[in-house]
Structure formats: C-alpha cells, structure tokens
Amino acid sequence: MMWTKLTIDTTVEAVDLISAFLDEKGVEGVMIEDHVPLTEEDKAAMFVDIPLVDGVDDGTAKVSCYIDDSFNIETLRADIAAELTRLEAFIPVGSKNITLSNTEDKDWMNNWKQFFHPIRLYDDIVIKPTWETVEDAKPDDIVIEIDPGIAFGTGSHETTKLCIGQLKKYLKPGDMVFDVGCGSGILSMIASRLGAGFVHGMDIDELAVRASEENAKLNHMGEDKIKFSCGNLLADNYIGKGTTFQLDRSTIKETQHLDVDRQYDIVVANILADVIVPLSAVIGPYLKDDGYFITSGILDVKENDVTDAMKANGFEVIDVVHMNDWVSVIGRKK
C-alpha cells in the first residue's frame, strides 16, 4: 500500500487547533515539528545523554499526517485549506502551504533484520540472530542467539562491547550477577555463559523483560541460572513484579539499611550517565563487600559525573575504559 504524507506549514500557535481539526476528519495521528526549546524539566525526564541541537524558535511549525486510500486526498486538502483560512481571522497560521508526498508501506518491524548479522567479540563470543548461521564457528565459542524484537540490544554498540569486556575481566566462576537495565538480555546471558552461578536481569520495560525471557529460552537457559523481572530501583527502590526478590518498600532517603534478600558479586548497568549517577546512590546494598559495579552507556563528556558519584557513594573507581566516544567505569564497593 502507498501512503500519502500531508504536511501543513503553519505556526506553533495554530498547531493544536489544526491537530484537533484533523482528528475530527478521521486522521488518527499527527507529527509536529517546531523549534520550541525543551525545558529543563523536559530534558530531565528524557534522560538525554546526547547533546541536543538548539534551534532558534521562529514560531513556525509543521503538522504532518499519513493518509491511506480510504481518504479522498483532494477533498481533505481543500477542507484543510478552508479551515486555515477560517482560523486566520483569529490567530496567525503561517504560510498555509500544504504539500503531499508518497511513501511505501514497508514492513518496518522486520526490514531491520537485513542489517543484523553474527557479531564476533573478543575472539570467542558470537552474538547471532536466530535467522542467521555462524560461518566461522570455533569449538570454544560462546554463541548467544538473540531475537531482539522491540527491546534494545544486539551487541554491536560500543557500550555493550565495553560491558562484555569488563565481564570477561572481572567475573569469576560462580559469581552472582545483577544486570540492571537488561534490555534484550544480552549481558545477562553472556554473564551466565562466562560462568556466573546465577544472573538476575531487570528492566523497567515489561516488553524488554519478555524479550529477555524469550532469548534465554532460545539459549536453553533455565530459571535456576537466569531470571528476569520488571522494576525500577530509582522510582520505587524495589524489584518489581514477577520475582521473589523483594526489598523493604521504604525509600533510600528514609533508611540506610534495606532488607535485601540477595547480594551480588557484580552489578552491571549499561544505561545512561544520568541514570547511573543516581543509581550509584542506591545500588550499594545489592553488592557484596568488594563487589564490582560495572557501568557503561556513558558519553566521555559525562565521565567525571559518574566517577564523582561513585566516589561519593562508597565506591573505589578501579578501572575506566574508553571506546570511541563511550566510557565504561568500574567501581568496587568499599
């Protein structure tokens, strides 16, 4: 099917009224582009770790929507033009230009698969999609099969590579590992294959947890070795539903002694610096003394923020590794 993209050049002031008009006409969704700067509250909520490009707010905006063949495009276009003329008597509506373009209805949920091929890391670790075979397999390879679906993580990003390298360096056979922000479960599964006695992966996204569980099954890993749960340590200070690991529901600000049922030799968190910084204040009770806090997902410009936070929360920074613009910081619990 071919879709028609309809774009209206207008003003920020008129965006809401135009969006409401399109909704009345049966359009099920709109995309708005403008130059209105994000507030500090917006930026904090987004956990953005990539520098934002600030444009000049000139008051202009674009409202776009995608129309299928159930609409009469020319009739809709004429109706929009008439509505813009009516609104112009009350508010600025901009140039009122309406442009049309066609886009093919592709299988976006699956087309990305053509770009995901087996990845070899550190010579003996292979991450492969379920639909590919490993052509250069070696007898001692650790092979992880994965179907990422809509969960983040295929193993190709520098941050994942950094965490894998640190797990190879610090994980000892039998260690207990806590993977905070497990995504598709890659780090949890690799930790298990590297010899961890037990791995607990956690994510705030239920879909990510579901994907991790399915990927563990693909790799024949049972719940006696690896388990996933949904929870948000920063929001609730507890590990969420679907798990037997429960904490005192008091917040970290109210008590310094949490009733933690299980402590780990290693906590690994491949997230963002702006999450790792507050996480370092609550993760200590989950670690055994001298346990390792392996972190990545950190842009080099945020390295000092993370190391300072670790030091302020009872960790000795013992290792910092760079890969292009990304950094892995490892702390040891004192």
Rank of each mutant, 00 (worst) to 15 (best):
I146G: 06
A151H: 03
L162K: 05
K169M: 08
L167D: 00
I150K: 13
T154P: 11
C163G: 07
A151L: 11
M176G: 11
F152N: 03
Y170T: 10
L167H: 02
D147Q: 11
I150P: 07
G155Q: 12
I144F: 03
D147N: 13
G174T: 09
G153P: 09
E158H: 12
I164V: 15
T154Y: 06
K172R: 15
G153F: 13
F152D: 04
D175V: 01
Y170G: 09
G165D: 03
L171G: 08
Y170D: 05
E158K: 12
I146P: 10
T160K: 04
T160A: 01
L171T: 08
M176Y: 13
C163E: 08
M176V: 02
Q166E: 15
M176S: 13
M176E: 14
V177I: 11
C163V: 06
I146H: 10
I146C: 14
V177M: 10
D147W: 05
T154D: 03
G153S: 08
K161L: 00
A151V: 06
V177N: 11
G165K: 05
Q166F: 00
I144P: 10
D147H: 05
E145R: 07
K168L: 06
L162G: 06
L171P: 10
M176K: 13
Q166D: 03
K169C: 01
L162F: 01
C163I: 07
A151C: 07
T159F: 09
K169A: 12
T154Q: 09
K161R: 15
I164G: 06
G165V: 00
D175Q: 03
C163R: 08
G149C: 10
Q166I: 00
P148D: 00
